Amino acid sequence: MLRKTYIRWLIIVLLGILIFLISKHFDLLENLIAFSHRHEDWELDELLILSLYLSITLLFVNLIQIKELRKNLRDKNTLIREINHRVKNHFTSMESFIYLQSEELKDIKCKQALIETSSRIGTIRSVYDKLSHRESDDNTKISLREYLEDLSNGLVKIFPSESKMQLETDYDDGDIEHSQATSLGIIFNEIFTNSLKYGTRNGYLKIKASAKISHKTCIVTIEDNGEGFKEDFNSTQHTGLGLTIIQAVIDQLKGTISFENKEGAHTSFSFPLT
């Protein structure tokens, strides 16, 4: 790398000497010095040589600056990817420890609570996993489709259903800021998990999940074929942990959410993209 730098500067110096000799032949430097003391018209060939000299000099200076900026940018992106990779590994360790602890428990409710906690950590870990493998120079965004596909498939493995199951997904292939992706994943995790746990009817579980980006707004819908929400269900008065998390994160996103009964539970939420 050092040798290449020396070679670049040597080329610039040689070109500078060449232009100097040409300009010397036309008395260009003398005219340039004299120009500050007297106002006389230059010949066209003298102006052309001066323009050429300045243009080439500025061109090479700019090329060197661009080269250095690109190198610094690559170093920065490499560092950011490494940081994201390490954060992902920390979350993976936490997720694994909690899951292993749940395997030691015999109390079903306690075991289920730890598994759900592990899945919540997994939604955050997945964001950093995507960021650490991002190939482009933009280290702040991830693919919406890839992220939600990983989440939905991962949740199906964590909460396997004993019933026959059908999963239909339709996610747009746009990009989303990692901070919003984390919030989206937390909400998605709570709603999707609820469908996995309570969406079965007559031994059959069907879940449809979609995410669309339209007019700088992300719209996510999750529905199942279960019994749906209770008639007296009120999301604003419900005190369960899952719904409390959903409402808090929706407020953070400045979004809206609706819960309906159609052929089962139908939940849709939207938020503006940054």
Rank of each mutant, 00 (worst) to 15 (best):
M165S: 15
I7M: 09
K206P: 03
I142G: 07
A211H: 00
N261L: 04
F26P: 02
L69F: 12
S210F: 06
I124Q: 05
P160I: 07
N202K: 14
D251T: 09
N153V: 04
N139C: 10
L50C: 00
I186Q: 10
D129Y: 08
I12A: 11
S195I: 04
S210E: 05
E162V: 08
K157A: 09
E104H: 12
H37K: 12
E162K: 13
L241C: 00
S210T: 12
I33S: 08
N194G: 08
F233N: 06
T117P: 01
K141S: 09
D150S: 05
L241Y: 09
N77F: 01
I108A: 15
E135L: 10
L32K: 03
S23C: 13
T239F: 01
E146S: 09
T169W: 01
E46Y: 04
S36F: 15
I124Y: 00
T5L: 11
S258P: 05
L2G: 07
K212E: 08
D138L: 00
L28S: 03
K24W: 11
F60H: 09
Q101L: 14
S163Y: 07
S119T: 15
N89Q: 11
F259T: 05
E231N: 14
F269N: 05
H25D: 14
R145Y: 00
E30R: 12
Q112D: 15
F60N: 02
S23L: 10
N77Q: 04
I19E: 09
N62A: 13
G264H: 02
I19R: 05
T140Q: 12
G264E: 06
L32F: 12
I191T: 03
T244E: 10
K254Y: 09
F233W: 07
D173L: 03
D45W: 13
I64V: 10
D251V: 03
D172E: 02
S152A: 03
S195K: 00
I213A: 04
A181T: 06
R86A: 06
S235D: 09
S93P: 08
D170Y: 01
S118E: 07
I158G: 06
D41E: 13
I207Q: 08
E231M: 04
S118T: 10
S55I: 15
E135I: 10
H215L: 09
T256R: 10
T267C: 05
D232N: 14
S183L: 08
T92I: 05
K76H: 11
L69D: 12
S102V: 07
E30Q: 11
S119E: 10
H90E: 15
Q112N: 14
N153R: 11
D138S: 03
L131V: 02
R74W: 02
L155R: 00
N31Y: 06
E177K: 08
L131Q: 00
F269K: 04
E135T: 10
G154V: 08
S93E: 13
E146T: 05
K76L: 11
G242A: 02
T236L: 11
H266M: 04
H90P: 00
T217K: 15
R86D: 15
W9I: 13
M94C: 09
N84G: 04
R3S: 09
M94G: 15
T182P: 03
N261Y: 05
E95W: 04
I49D: 00
I176S: 07
F97E: 14
D45K: 11
G226W: 00
I222C: 03
G240D: 09
S118Q: 06
V127K: 02
G228R: 02
E223I: 02
L105R: 04
L21P: 01
A248P: 03
S179P: 00
L21F: 12
E116A: 13
